[in-house]
Amino acid sequence: MTDILASLLIMAGLFFFMAGSIGLLRFPDLYSRLHALTKADNLGLGLLIIGLALHLRDPLIALKLLLIWLAVLAAGATSAHLIARHARRREKHV
């Protein structure tokens, strides 16, 4: 039962990664590409990590995975913000 749930969560996570990658390749401008990418980072990785934690059933590993997710969330959000701000400033100058 848990394994089925874990597999479903991991597959849902992979779907977000795929959608994010397609968005990164297909979207027209930088801002919408960033939007697609951060969805993959946040939701995709989150679902993947919940699935993996359910699959491994080890609270210590689950805690480590959770920490990884939080670190990626913060780093991803910050770098997306920095890239977007840089692009916006450059637009204003041109």
């Binding site: 670190a71 913060a74 780093a75 913000h81 920095l82 701000r85």
Partner: peptide
Amino acid sequence: GPVFTSLTRWLTPL
């Protein structure tokens, strides 16, 4: 700016 600075604040000790 404030966003990167606040990331630095908890990333550095970590």
